[in-house]
Deep mutational scan, measured.
Amino acid sequence: MDTYKLILNGKTLKGETTTEAVDAATAEKVFKHAANEHGVHGHWTYDPETKTFTVTE
């Protein structure tokens, strides 16, 4: 398992979190669910070198 990071750049919610996942696709599902639960919808990017997802509203 690897550690993946999410950076939230929402209009009303900003922050960072991490998750352990077997691959980037699994981490993305976890992060998108969490972002949706917090009402953050926007443009997603992924940097494979740093294993970091970013969502920007």
Rank of each mutant, 00 (worst) to 15 (best):
Thr18Gln: 09
His43Glu: 14
Thr54His: 05
Glu20Phe: 12
Ala35Phe: 06
Thr56Pro: 01
Thr45Trp: 06
Thr17Ala: 13
Asp47Ala: 06
Val55Glu: 00
Gly39Asp: 06
Phe31Lys: 00
Thr17Asp: 06
Met1Cys: 12
Phe53Thr: 00
Phe53Pro: 00
Gly15Gln: 12
Ala25Leu: 10
Glu49Val: 11
Gly15Asp: 07
Lys11Leu: 15
Gly42Lys: 02
Lys32Phe: 07
Ala21Val: 04
Gly42Asp: 01
Thr3Leu: 11
His38Ala: 15
Glu49Pro: 08
Thr50Met: 06
Asp47Val: 06
Ala27Cys: 01
His41Tyr: 14
Ala24Asp: 04
Thr50Phe: 06
Ala35Tyr: 05
Ala35Cys: 08
Gly39Leu: 05
Lys11Thr: 13
Glu16Gln: 09
Lys51Thr: 03
Met1Phe: 12
Thr12Glu: 10
Lys14Glu: 05
Tyr46Asn: 00
Trp44Ala: 01
Asp2Thr: 14
Val22Met: 12
Val55Lys: 01
Val30Gly: 04
Leu6Gln: 01
Ala24Phe: 13
His33Val: 14
Met1Thr: 11
Asp2Arg: 11
Phe53His: 01
Ala25Arg: 10
Ile7Val: 10
Ala35Gly: 03
Leu6Glu: 02
Glu20His: 10
Thr12Cys: 15
Val22Asp: 07
Thr12Asp: 11
Glu49Gln: 11
Lys5His: 10
Glu49His: 11
Ala34Thr: 14
Val40Pro: 02
Ala25Phe: 10
Lys51Ile: 02
Glu16His: 09
Lys51Leu: 10
Asp47His: 06
Tyr4Gln: 02
Thr56Ser: 08
Glu57Thr: 06
Thr45Tyr: 08
Val30Lys: 08
Pro48Asp: 09
Gly10Glu: 03
Glu28Arg: 08
Thr54Ile: 07
Val55Leu: 09
Asp2Ala: 13
Lys5Val: 10
Glu28Thr: 03
Phe31Cys: 01
Glu20Met: 14
Lys32Asp: 02
Ala27Met: 01
Glu49Arg: 10
Phe31Ala: 00
Thr3Lys: 09
Gly42Leu: 03
Glu20Arg: 13
Ala27His: 00
Ile7Met: 05
Glu57Asn: 04
Phe53Val: 00
Asn36Lys: 14
Leu13Pro: 04
Trp44Tyr: 02
His33Ser: 12
Gly15Leu: 15
Lys14Leu: 08
Leu6Gly: 01
Thr26Gly: 09
Thr19Asn: 03
Asp23Gly: 03
Val30Met: 10
Ala27Gln: 01
Tyr46Arg: 00
Glu37Ala: 13
Lys29Gly: 08
Lys5Tyr: 14
His43Arg: 12
Phe31Met: 02
Val40His: 03
Trp44Gly: 00
Asn9Phe: 10
Thr12Met: 11
Glu49Ser: 13
Ala25Gln: 11
Ala34Asn: 07
Thr26Val: 07
Thr45Ile: 07
Val22Lys: 12
Gly10Cys: 12
Ala21Leu: 02
Ile7Thr: 04
Thr12Asn: 13
Thr52Asp: 00
Ala24Trp: 12
Gly39Lys: 06
Ile7Lys: 05
Ala27Arg: 00
Glu16Tyr: 13
Ala35Ser: 05
Met1Arg: 10
Ala34His: 15
His41Phe: 15
Glu20Cys: 13
Tyr46His: 01
Thr26Ala: 14
Thr45Leu: 07
Asn36His: 13
Pro48Met: 08
Lys29Met: 12
Ala34Trp: 15
Pro48Ser: 10
Glu16Met: 10
Lys32Ser: 05
Ala21Gly: 03
Thr50Pro: 02
Phe53Ile: 01
Lys5Glu: 03
Ala24Lys: 12
Gly39Ile: 07
Thr54Ala: 04
Ala34Glu: 09
Val55Tyr: 03
Lys11Tyr: 11
Lys32Asn: 05
Thr50Val: 05
Thr12Ala: 09
Asp23Lys: 02
Val40Ser: 03
Ala27Ser: 01
Phe53Asn: 00
Lys11Glu: 10
Ile7Trp: 04
Val40Thr: 03
Lys51Gly: 03
His33Pro: 02
Gly15Cys: 15
Ala34Arg: 13
Ala21Trp: 01
Lys11Arg: 13
Glu20Gln: 14
